[in-house]
C-alpha cells in the first residue's frame, strides 16, 4: 500500500515536472518576440536583420530619431492622430454601446427582435466592401482630405451599435426587480437607466472603454483606404507597415522596433491595469448557453 502511494506520488511529481518544462518553453516562445523587439530597438547597426543575435552597439538613437527625423516618416504625427482617434472613438462608442444595450435589454418595443436580427445579418457582410460607398458618402458630407480624421472616426463609430452583444448580456443579468422597484416609485425609463443600471455597470463600462480604446491602434484596412497613400493621414498601423516596405525596411527596421515599443508600452500598461475587467468581459460574453 505504501509502495503504491509512493509510486503515485512519483508519477505526480514527474507530471508536474513535465508541465513546468512545457510552461517554461511556452513562456520563452511567447516572450521571445517581445524581447527581440526591445533588443532591436536599441541596436546601433543598420539593416533589417543581423547575422548575430545580440546587438554590438547599444544606442537610444532609434528613439530619438523617431521624433527628430520626421521628414519621410512623421511618427509623432501618426501617434497623435491615432491617440485622438482612439479617445474620441472610445467616448462615442462606449455611449452608443451602453445606450443600445439598455434599449435592447430593458425596453420592449415592436421592432426590437427584427432590429436584433437585422444587426446579426448586417454583421455577416464583409465590412470594408462598402468602403467605396462610405467614401462617397463622406465626400458628400465633406469629410475627406483635411477632415479625413473626422471621416475615419465616423466610420469607426457609425456601426458600433452592432457590438452590443456582450454589454446587453451583462445588462440581462442585472435583476429586473431593481427596475420594477424604481418604476413603482415613479422613476421614468431614463431615470432607471441613469440611476439604477449605469451605477451597476462599472465592469462592463470599463471593458467597453478598454476594447474600444485598443481597437483603433491596430486598425489597418479602413485607415489605409481613407488615408489613400497620404503619409500625413496615416495611423500608426498603416505608418509602421509603410516603414517595413521593401524599399525602406533596411534603413528603418530598428526605428520600427523603437516605434513599436513606444506604442506598446502605454497600451500594455493600461491593459494590465484593467485586466480584471477585460477577463470578466470576455468570459461573460462568451459563455451563454
Amino acid at each position: 500500500m505504501a509502495k503504491k502511494f509512493r509510486s503515485k506520488k512519483r508519477a505526480e511529481r514527474t507530471a508536474n515536472a513535465v508541465i513546468y518544462i512545457i510552461l517554461t518553453v511556452i513562456s520563452i516562445v511567447w516572450l521571445f518576440p517581445f524581447f527581440y523587439l526591445v533588443l532591436q530597438s536599441l541596436r546601433g547597426e543598420a539593416g533589417a536583420s543581423t547575422l548575430y543575435f545580440w546587438p554590438k552597439q547599444w544606442t537610444f538613437d532609434n528613439y530619438i530619431k523617431l521624433f527628430t527625423d520626421t521628414a519621410t516618416f512623421n511618427f509623432p504625427r501618426w501617434y497623435g492622430i491615432t491617440l485622438i482617434i482612439s479617445v474620441v472613438v472610445t467616448v462615442i462608442q462606449t455611449t452608443i454601446v451602453l445606450v443600445t444595450s439598455y434599449a435592447l435589454s430593458r425596453l420592449r418595443f415592436r421592432l426590437r427582435k427584427p432590429l436584433m436580427n437585422l444587426m446579426l445579418i448586417l454583421g455577416m457582410f464583409p465590412g470594408f466592401m462598402s468602403m467605396t460607398a462610405v467614401y462617397f458618402i463622406l465626400k458628400l458630407i465633406g469629410l475627406t482630405q483635411n477632415l479625413g480624421l473626422i471621416g475615419l472616426i465616423l466610420v469607426y463609430v457609425a456601426s458600433s451599435c452592432m457590438g452590443y452583444y456582450i454589454c446587453k448580456g451583462f445588462f440581462d443579468t442585472i435583476p429586473k426587480s431593481l427596475d420594477e422597484a424604481a418604476r413603482i416609485d415613479g422613476a421614468s425609463r431614463q431615470t432607471v437607466f441613469f440611476k439604477v443600471i449605469l451605477p451597476l455597470a462599472k465592469p462592463i463600462i470599463i471593458y467597453t472603454v478598454l476594447t474600444s480604446f485598443m481597437a483603433p491602434w491596430g486598425e489597418y484596412m479602413f485607415a489605409s483606404l481613407i488615408a489613400n497613400g497620404d503619409y500625413d493621414y496615416f495611423n500608426v498601423a498603416v505608418g509602421l507597415r509603410q516603414m517595413l516596405q521593401r524599399e525602406t525596411v533596411q534603413q528603418y527596421f530598428t526605428r520600427f522596433c523603437a516605434a513599436s515599443v513606444l506604442i506598446s508600452i502605454p497600451i500594455t500598461v493600461l491593459f494590465f491595469w484593467l485586466q480584471k475587467y477585460y477577463v470578466q468581459g470576455v468570459t461573460g460574453g462568451s459563455v451563454k448557453g
Partner: peptide
Amino acid sequence: LTIAVPQFV
C-alpha cells in the same frame, strides 16, 4: 502579454 501588445506590432 500577446493580447496587451497591439496585434499589428
